[in-house]
């Protein structure tokens, strides 16, 4: 088995036995949605009109807050150091972590998006559309939030600086994802899909390079 395969297997093994990451993400996600629903009130018309932007904002904050779990423990217990000693490149470590985070986020949202859409009176027929938009934008969001978690290791856990450095990069994704017409089953979202995919193609190599540098820096 190649090195990346071994690393991915390790990450999935950890993910399978530790539901902490999935629970932390899901609980924050649900709590934030409930708070929004209660603060807006029982008017389903208002609730359904703000559902999509709120969904992406909550996904973003849940990702930033839970991304630490994927990096922090390996850093604290020396596993990041051990992995590098064992000959796994920083790029491979970053990609393996991204994949495991992506799978955990996509799986959680597979249940969370339909569940939360019920609170906001969203028609069940357009949930698939929402999930597709989420699927195309989530890889970029995951890569950015992992970079943000690695930054937080470098800047001595100062979350404020972490937000300032990384959050602006999430904005284009949020704009293009939440501006899509979720009730449209035709092809009018095609351009936005391509833009989001383009963002992913730009983010992937850049985040691998930055992730590699940040992982290497943890040894210093």
């Amino acid at each position: 088995m190649n090195d990346l395969g071994i690393l991915v297997r390790r990450e999935f093994k950890i993910l399978l036995v530790s539901i902490k990451q999935v629970l932390a993400y899901s609980s924050f996600f649900l709590l934030a949605f409930l708070l929004f629903a209660f603060s807006v009130g029982p008017n389903l018309k208002i609730l359904s009109s703000i559902y999509f932007p709120i969904l992406f904002m909550i996904i973003l904050f849940s990702l930033i807050l839970t991304s630490d779990n994927f990096i922090d423990e390996d850093f604290k217990n020396g596993s990041l150091k051990e992995l590098q000693f064992l000959g796994f490149s920083a790029e491979q470590i970053f990609i393996a972590k991204s994949l495991s985070m992506l799978v955990s986020i996509v799986l959680s949202n597979f249940f969370l998006i339909p569940l939360t859409s019920l609170f906001f009176g969203i028609n069940f027929s357009i949930i698939l559309n929402i999930f597709l938009i989420f699927l195309i934008s989530s890889p970029t969001l995951v890569l950015l939030s992992l970079i943000s978690a690695l930054f937080s290791l470098q800047i001595k856990r100062n979350k404020f600086i972490q937000f300032i450095i990384v959050t602006p990069f999430f904005i284009p994704i949020i704009i293009f994802a939440s501006s899509m017409n979720i009730s449209d089953t035709e092809n009018s979202n095609y351009v936005n899909f391509l833009i989001l995919f383009g963002f992913f193609l730009i983010t992937l190599p850049l985040s691998i390079i930055i992730g590699k540098l940040l992982i290497k820096e943890t040894n210093q």
Partner: peptide
């Protein structure tokens, strides 16, 4: 290294098996 390099949420056996996997 001086750190234990063990995942807290895994058992002793699981940690050893992961180390064996990483070392092929």
């Amino acid at each position: 290294p001086h750190e234990n390099c063990l995942r807290d949420n895994l058992s002793i056996e699981e940690n050893i098996r992961i180390w064996l996997l990483l070392n092929s």
